[in-house]
Amino acid sequence: MTAASTPWRFVTPIWPVLLVLVIGASLLSGPFLSPANIAAVLQQGVITGIVALGMTIVLIGGQFDLSTGATVMMAAVMALLLNPADGTSTALAILLPVALGGMIGLVNGLAVYRAGANSIVATIGMQFLVIGAVLALVSGQHVRADNMSEIFVSLSRARLLGIPYSVYIFLGLVIALSVMMSSTVFGRHVYALGGDIEAARRAGVKVVRTGIATYVISGMLAALAGVLIASLVGNLDPTAIRGYEFPALTAAVLGGTSLTGGVGRPADTAAAIWVIAVITNVMTILNYQYPVQLLVQGVVLTAAVAFYSWQRARS
């Protein structure tokens, strides 16, 4: 009996983990369950979560995208440089970074699927290329936008039922991408790509085009995450906006996305994002600083990879 034939196929191990963590966190620290903190936890996951959704799709296709952290930074800086004060500039500050993120994805996709480059090293190279370019553009200085338009600010600040808009944007993306991956031809082709690229090619899947599309999606999502950061802070030190690719990768893997492709679901990644957000939140409440959080993330990633590879070896 395979997992897919049971009604439990929608419940992967990450969901019970999330449930246990939420219960544990509320017992461990009183302030955890306050509405303000819950909204904070939900929002904390959004930026990394959007990046992680793109990462999940690239991973399902059997490749990696470690350039996304740099794309987040590029988009955040660019959105602020475009100074979204009125309607037109607001639209530009959202659309241009996303388009450029798509372009970065396109170049990654061409390198990986067209030229056959190793995706990890190529996208790390791209990461430094983009970070260097952005820092050179702003000479490493802070960027700020004054008089940001209300619409732009509301992207991450305005709330509906006490929950920030950005959380709804994330949820919308989770649903849209879940449908795309499970119920469209494109989605099935991506799974086919990651399962066995040669078999997919022979079955008539347009391998290069589909693969490039996964990178373009990842780049655009990362850029959107950057735009949300810009709308949240309005003033940022570009050197501080970095490293998003690692928690995103951790979340995707924790959610059960296979590092060898063909397995994974956007919704599971979202669950994993909140697992990480809860852990980070509790650690912040208990006053553990960034280095310890970094250490814990590394341990979580290693444990998750080890767990899933053990599980697959067993079945």
Partner: peptide, 23 residues
């Protein structure tokens, strides 16, 4: 040359190298 451009150069070099290797 500012360090940002050096970062760009090394990143671009690595990117180009793996593309060439792939090809």
């Amino acid at each position: 040359v500012p360090s940002y451009y050096q970062r760009m150069t090394i990143g671009g070099l690595l990117f180009a190298l793996v593309v060439v290797e792939g090809l």
